[in-house]
Amino acid sequence: MSGGRLKAGPAVRARARLALIGPGFSYLVVLLVLPLALVIGYSVFQRGRFGGIAYEDGVTGDNFARLADPLYAGVLTDSLRIAGLTTVLALALGYPTAYAITRLPARWRTVALVLVVLPFWTNFLIRTYAWIVLLSSEGVVNSALTGIGVIDRPLELLYTDTAVVVGLLYAYLPLMVLPLYSAIERVDPRLLEASADLGARPVRTFLSVTLPLTLPGVLTGCVFVFVPSLGNFVVPELLGGGRTVMVGNLIRDQFLSARDWPFGSVLALALMAFLVLLLMAQAWAGQRLGGRR
């Protein structure tokens, strides 16, 4: 910043700053701040008779009161359960994967990381449809299992909570692996050697050195998986067959089927508030963990 050769005046610097910040800032205003303001606005009005907003009926808090309805609370707990399970499984699968990748020779590490993000090169919908092909009663898994005689009748795989978790896990596992990889890779190998030198067996070294030092990465990965899982409505729709209603589905339904924009807005805000709290908790915990370095 204080480069000796850059002797630009304050006015020039201010303009340069504007040029740098400008595009991103406009993007945020148009695509984030304005829609958010709209949603906040909608949430305090009543729905019109044929959808839309009945501005003439005045402001109300009723929409927020509806949140207390056990029906919606149930949807929220279901969503939390499914997103939570997805996150835990992603961590359980992602940590060993990320760890194994850091132990590969440098050349293969890049290859492995490309493989991890490879699914992102295909459309999300198509990838989710692929799971239907795999899991349906005439699908690949069931035909294979009946074919080798493990089962007589096809298993009910599709349209279950499990299918939703599998779909979400598949979709977001790379978001767990990448931050974990970068966290594990940053751990100084000398520290592991020092631990061994001081008499710690490999498991102890992992628990006392590697794991604590990679906790910020664990936290990041968990948030990266949990947040989009909680709001996702495509996977529950396609793989849950409408039987699993998650918060995302509920919000979409309010806007598109029930045409109750005000309540949809309230649900969206509630979800957002929850996630903001979560991110704040993550930032706080990350700082505490990172601050010890």
Partner: peptide, 12 residues
């Protein structure tokens, strides 16, 4: 026991 040239203290 080895004392490392780079110390290798556990930062956490």
């Amino acid at each position: 026991n080895l004392m490392f040239q780079s110390y290798a203290l556990f930062p956490h």
